[in-house]
């Protein structure tokens, strides 16, 4: 049990997917301008990561490993992730048209969000069992949501901050992201 808690903490803060593993940077900068869109993107990514890691884990251990065709893992994982994102898109379009509109082109881009494929492959490489995999992918995607939310709040404030003209917009956002990443690397070694 305690190992699961430390795994959850490690996934959430210490090995934060955006700020220490630098995966999923595209939506991190692209959809963080407005908090509502950032929260929506985060939740969509949580859903996709947890579901796709579970399916890919099962597929890897019960199909690919059984048939000794582990080398197919990358292409199979991409296939699963792409179809899942497609389904999420259809769901969102029906359930929340406003969120669908706010996310725009970034929603289909979850397909190529390396965080999703990254988590699926990390789960296999680290040899997690099903429960560990579930905890790890849940908390790593919640870490994604968490960083998206704090970063979007900072960017909303930055819009009103007296920033030198040359740094307005994306440059200052990149500097803020770098400082955030520096802070998060200091968590290294806790777990």
């Amino acid at each position: 049990m305690s190992s699961l808690i430390s795994l959850a903490f490690a996934a959430f803060i210490v090995q934060n997917i955006i700020l220490t593993q630098f995966l999923g940077i595209c939506p991190f900068l692209g959809v963080s301008r407005k908090r509502s869109a950032a929260v929506g993107m985060g939740i969509a990514v949580v859903f996709v990561i947890v579901l796709s890691s579970s399916i890919t884990w099962l597929l890897y251990h019960y199909v690919l490993a059984e048939l000794h065709i582990e080398y197919l893992r990358t292409i199979v994982f991409i296939l699963v992730i792409a179809s899942l994102v497609q389904m999420v898109e259809i769901f969102l379009k029906k359930i929340s048209p406003a969120l669908y509109k706010a996310l725009g082109i970034y929603l289909p881009l979850i397909t190529t969000n390396c965080a999703v494929l990254g988590v699926a492959i990390i789960n296999i490489n680290n040899g997690y069992n099903f429960l560990e995999m579930l905890v790890y992918s849940t908390f790593i995607s919640l870490g994604f949501l968490f960083v998206m939310v704090i970063f979007s709040m900072m960017r909303e404030k930055l819009d009103f901050a007296p920033v030198p003209k040359a740094f307005k917009g994306t440059p200052i956002a990149l500097i803020v992201a770098a400082i955030l990443a520096l802070i998060f690397t200091r968590f290294g070694g806790i777990v």
Binding site: V63, L67, I69
Partner: peptide
């Protein structure tokens, strides 16, 4: 066969 089957199942689900 594995890839084709998987593609078929996922395509049908979509």
């Amino acid at each position: 066969l594995v890839l084709a089957g998987l593609g078929f199942v996922l395509g049908f689900l979509i």
